[in-house]
């Protein structure tokens, strides 16, 4: 690990200024991914700006009646929050399906969205990786990649996004809020992660130096019965082979609306929009599923 400076900040503007004035600066929150990657030699910041003391924690009701989850809220607090559990159970489930109790106590919502792929080739600086060092190639394309992307990949990168939380957020059409020195902005989660194309190193559309301040959820989900299901190589404490967040609005036996997001299959939470369109307006029964019994 390279040497670095460390500064703890209490105001957003202070954080933005510190990162803007130094190219090598990175925000540090829970550190569960960043510190790990620094140990692997993948990340080598010259300064860490610790944002956990910023007033960005907690879950509150938004002006529109939706939920606003502060960026430094820990994963544990998101999953345990009564309103998240009541209105967006798939989000609570998704968070709880990720990592371990210890890591969820450290990890934050903002950091979770910005965590980097767990592709083994990305984490090993002696392997070629276009995401880590653009233009070097992708070892995973011809390598061992049975848990890599099946949707939206390119010859330049077949890595998947590892977040469980983001999959549920995608299903709920969440919006990411951020601040920069030039003012704030918001990005729908569906546009937050750009297509891989030939620029796998560009993992989000956040402006340079921006700090995620919150994630907001809409006023109402389709139903109070949204669910998250994750399949992995062991029963817990493992990344997904595939996961699904789904919410289904049913009225009179008809699928009024449906949202399905898949995890572990692409460089971003993958909205299964064709499947949604296929199901929307159809009968809510097992028979709807192609190949179903």
């Amino acid at each position: 690990m390279r040497e670095f400076a460390y500064q703890r900040v209490t105001q957003v503007r202070e954080a933005l200024t510190l990162v803007a004035e130094n190219d090598g600066s990175r925000y540090l929150a829970g550190g569960t991914n960043l510190v790990d990657l620094m140990k692997c030699g993948v990340e080598a910041p010259t300064r860490l700006v610790d944002v956990r003391s910023l007033p960005l924690g907690g879950v509150r009701e938004g002006a529109d009646g939706g939920l606003v989850i502060g960026a430094t809220t820990t994963n544990s607090d998101v999953a345990a929050h009564p309103e998240v559990r009541r209105r967006f159970p798939a989000l609570s489930q998704a968070v709880l399906a990720g990592a371990s109790g210890q890591l969820r106590n450290m990890a934050t919502v903002g950091g979770n969205l910005l965590q980097r792929t767990r592709c083994a080739y990305f984490a090993d600086p002696s392997q070629a990786c276009n995401k880590r060092v653009p233009g070097t190639g992708c070892s995973a394309v011809d390598g061992a990649h049975h848990n890599h992307a099946v949707f939206g990949w390119s010859r330049h990168c077949v890595a998947t996004h590892p977040s469980d939380m983001a999959v549920a957020l995608a299903a709920f059409d969440a919006v990411v809020h951020y601040e920069t020195l030039d003012g704030g902005g918001e990005i729908p989660l569906s546009e937050f992660y750009p297509p891989v194309g030939d620029t796998p190193q560009q993992e989000t559309v956040l402006p340079s130096g921006a700090l995620i301040t919150a994630v907001s959820l809409p006023k109402a989900a389709l139903s109070p019965w949204s669910r998250y299901r994750k399949v992995r190589d062991r029963a817990s404490y493992a990344f997904a082979n595939v996961s699904i967040a789904a919410d289904l609005g049913v009225h009179d036996g008809v699928v009024r609306d449906v949202r399905i997001a898949l995890g572990g299959v692409a460089s971003q939470p993958w909205r299964a929009r064709s499947a949604e369109a296929f199901l929307r307006g159809g009968p809510a029964s097992f028979g709807t599923v192609p190949g179903g019994g």
Partner: peptide, 11 residues
């Protein structure tokens, strides 16, 4: 699991 190209363990 070995990388089929480099022959190294990748997990």
């Amino acid at each position: 699991v070995r990388d089929p190209v480099s022959g190294r363990h990748i997990n």
